[in-house]
Each structure stands twice: as C-alpha cells, then as structure tokens.
C-alpha cells in the first residue's frame, strides 16, 4: 500500500505516457508461470537423467522379495519405498529414475537425428529442385505411407535389439515431416528478399541456408521438433510395452507401463508413476515448444 501510494510522488515527472509495470508483473509476463513450471519439470527430468544414481534410494535391479507389491506412501506404505515396489519387490522410485534416464536419452537423441536428417534432406530438395527433389520427396512419401510401427517391428525382429540401434531407429521417426516442412519453408524463403539479397552479396549456398534461411525458419522447425519429441517417447513406450523396445533388465518408461499392466488392479502404482512421468514430460515439452516459438521471433515482443 505504502509503496503504491509513494511511487508516483517519488517518481520523476517523465515524458513517457506508459505507466510503469510492477517488477513482479513484468517478470511473470516475460516468464509465464505455466512455462516456469514446465521448465522446472524438464530441468528436474534432465537432472534426474544425469544424476539419478545419486538420488535413487536403491539399485533399480535390486529385489526385496519380502516387500513385494508394497504400496506407496499415502496408500498405506512406508518411506522405505516411497513409490512402492513391484511384483519382484524392486523399488518403483529407483526404477522410475532409471527409466526416465533411458527414455529421455533415447527421445532427445532420436529427435536430434530426425531433425538433422529432415532439415538436411529438406534443404537439399529445396536447393537442387528437379530430379534430386523428386527423389527426396519419393523417400518422404514412402516413409509417410508406411506405418512406422511396422518398420520398427521388422527392423528389431531382424536385426536384434541394442540401445544404439534402437535410438537410431527412433531417429528415423518423424524425419519425413520435418523434411517436408523444411523443404516448403526453404523454397518460400528462397524467394524472399533477404535470401536473394544474401545470394546477391555473393554468399555461398551454405551461408545462405545456414546463416539466413535456417534461423528464419527455425521457429517452425523447433515447434515440429517439440511435437516429435513426445511422439518418440510414446513410440518407445509402445515398443517397450510390446516387449520389442528396451530389454530387461534395463528399463524404460514404456517397459514399466507394459510390465505393470498385469498388476493394474492389485498394484496400480507400478504403472501410474511412469505414466504420469510420460504425460507430464510430453506436455511440458509441447508447452515449451510453443513458448520458444514466440520468444525466438525478434519481431514479436
């Protein structure tokens, strides 16, 4: 109260017609609370992925057969297993941390692979046009026409399963959408003044595409990457659920949901914890993607 009443008196009479905003309000306008929460969640996930071993109360593979299917705190359990235990008496919290680590690593690397692949092919198509473009578009259409799950099943069935192969395979998910978007945006950008002006300065195609076109279309690509990220998590979960993804004793969010399914009535906490992690992480990534699109555009302020 005293602050608001004394502020106009102490403030110098300025020529500005704008009423000064309070600091708190300005802060929350720049950083909306929802975004702060989402960023905090993603940061926590990344920290867990990096330093999860230090936080985990037990080894994620250690079995405690006397405490099988122990309920979590709040449902009659105790703090020895805050999120309860599964059918083999393994600590759910420790398994969750290990799962987050595997799933997020796969999702990040896979999104990166698909973005690099998609943007490169899209730009090549936009630059060369003609036959090269036709060939790339044919690849894109072929990929889009085939359900990815089938490709993934076939590859995993024939080539066996390893974490590297699995990550690369996930990287092939969604590249065709990014390639299509990148091609369309690059073709449109080529016709715009800034790109032709850069070319007229004598810039090489590398420079025109890397320094001018890519930053200008990055916001759209970024949003499509953030759409890709949750889908990779879900795909990984689906494949692990089917038993084709991450193999025991390794664990992932999807694998936890898959194995917890058998106990959904007697011990729902086994699958609820990883499900919640999947939902919250994908939601947060989408929110951050939208927000990034806005702040990366210097003309919106």
């Amino acid at each position: 109260m005293t602050e608001t009443s004394s502020a106009p008196a102490s403030a110098p009479v300025s020529a500005s017609v704008f009423t000064p905003k309070s600091r708190v309000r300005a802060f929350f306008e720049a950083w909306p609370p929802l975004i702060l929460l989402a960023l905090a969640w993603i940061a926590a996930m990344l920290l867990l992925a990096a330093f999860g071993d230090l936080v985990a109360p037990a080894d994620y593979m250690a079995m405690d057969l006397r405490a099988r299917l122990a309920p979590p705190v709040g449902m009659g359990g105790d703090w020895a297993h805050p999120l309860g235990t599964d059918e083999l008496g393994r600590d759910v919290l420790s398994r969750l941390i290990a799962s987050i680590r595997i799933s997020l690593t796969i999702a990040f690397l896979a999104t990166l692979v698909s973005a690099v692949l998609g943007v490169s092919l899209g730009f090549l198509a936009a630059y060369f046009r003609g036959k090269a473009e036709q060939a790339i578009l044919m690849l894109v259409d072929a990929q889009a026409a085939m359900p990815f799950m089938i490709i993934a099943l076939a590859v995993l069935a024939f080539l066996g399963n390893s974490l590297t192969l699995f990550t690369l395979l996930m990287g092939f998910y969604g590249w065709e959408r990014i390639a299509r978007i990148a091609r369309g945006l690059a073709i449109a950008a080529q016709e715009q003044g800034y790109a032709s002006a850069a070319r007229d300065l004598g810039a090489s195609p590398w420079r025109v595409y890397g320094r001018h076109i890519l930053p200008n279309i990055a916001s759209t690509l970024l949003v499509s990457m953030t759409l890709n990220f949750p889908e990779v998590i879900l795909l990984e979960s689906g494949l692990s659920f089917l038993g084709l993804g991450v193999q025991p004793p390794e664990t992932s969010l999807g694998a936890m949901v898959g194995y917890g399914r058998d106990y959904i009535q007697s011990a729902p906490w086994i699958m609820l914890a990883p499900s919640a992690a999947i939902v919250l992480t994908t939601l947060c990534i989408s929110l951050i993607g939208d927000w990034l699109r806005d702040i990366l555009d210097p003309t919106l302020s």
Binding site: Y194, A197, G202
Partner: peptide, 21 residues
C-alpha cells in the same frame, strides 16, 4: 559470386532485403 565484390545492388524494399534475425 566473386564478381559480387565489384557489383552490388540496392533494393526497392529495404526491409525485405535485410535479414530480420
């Protein structure tokens, strides 16, 4: 491209010719 060192252009629409980023 090398010849651009010796010949340059000024455009009608300066905002369009500049990279807004």
């Amino acid at each position: 491209r090398r010849l651009r060192r010796r010949m340059q252009m000024i455009y009608q629409d300066p905002l369009g010719a500049l990279d807004r980023r």
